[in-house]
Design a protein around this nucleic acid. Structure first.
Lengths: 123, 123
DNA sequence: CCTTATGTTCAATGATTATTGAACTATCGA
DNA sequence: TCGATAGTTCAATAATCATTGAACATAAGG
């Protein structure tokens, strides 16, 4: 059916919604994992997050992340590819996403985040 | 009544709780106003926030802000003085509070935050 | 003492939230 | 065409949330 999903424009991204989205452990883990993977590929499929929760629950969280402007979803066949809206976030709220990701990285264990590799680099 | 209120230690401050606290417009306004005032005085009374909501609702939000470690409450007579736990936040999540405050400042109008130099003394 | 000003506690309410599973749609590959 | 794969939709649930007002507690000041 619809090949494109609704996303807010850069200007429509709002701080309380972004913070609320990031305050949920599952959504934070999604964003974190997305950020981790960015160097390899800017996109991940829904299925790459199946370890975090059930599929229908993930659909729910993906919608929230998309609605608040944190990530963009691209439909390709039966797959949905998602990426962080880094530039939009940075333009809108400079330094915010990095600060959150760095904070999350500090508590990676406690937050049960993907222990893949280091997300932070020295400034 | 107990003269001291319970606060989490620096190490007990957790990212999701902090983000969730900051995601509420009223609480964000409280934190913002507290940050604005910091150069003049590090503390504000509960009553200084009466413009944001009713007293009992503010008590509720103050408790959330205190419980998550964002602010500290000091009891003095019939007054409660509150301040931002800037150093603890900075130690725990470097750059996070500043990024949020800067982001909030960008949307000050939209978020109906107190104008910079305008500290209301009604009465 | 009494009054006033400060802020809390409590109960009730309506709204939102995260989660689950079953049923469903749509696409790809053999 | 058939069957497997990827993900959504829907309804139901339990939990938490923000908000309100009334009643309460405490301290300061006359």
């Amino acid at each position: 059916m619809s090949r494109t999903l609704p996303h807010p424009t850069r200007e429509q991204i709002e701080l309380p919604l972004v913070l609320d989205c990031l305050s949920d452990p599952i959504r934070l883990a999604i964003v974190y994992q997305l950020a981790q993977q960015e160097r390899v590929s800017s996109e991940l499929r829904c299925g790459d997050f199946n370890g975090l929760s059930g599929k229908s629950n993930l659909t729910y969280h993906f919608a929230k992340l998309r609605d608040c402007g944190l990530m963009q979803t691209r439909v390709a066949g039966t797959n949905r590819f998602m990426r962080l809206r880094r530039d939009d976030l940075e333009a809108r709220f400079p330094g915010l996403l990095d600060a959150v990701l760095k904070s999350a990285a500090k508590d990676a264990e406690k937050l049960k985040l993907a222990p893949v590799c280091d997300v932070v680099e020295a400034g």
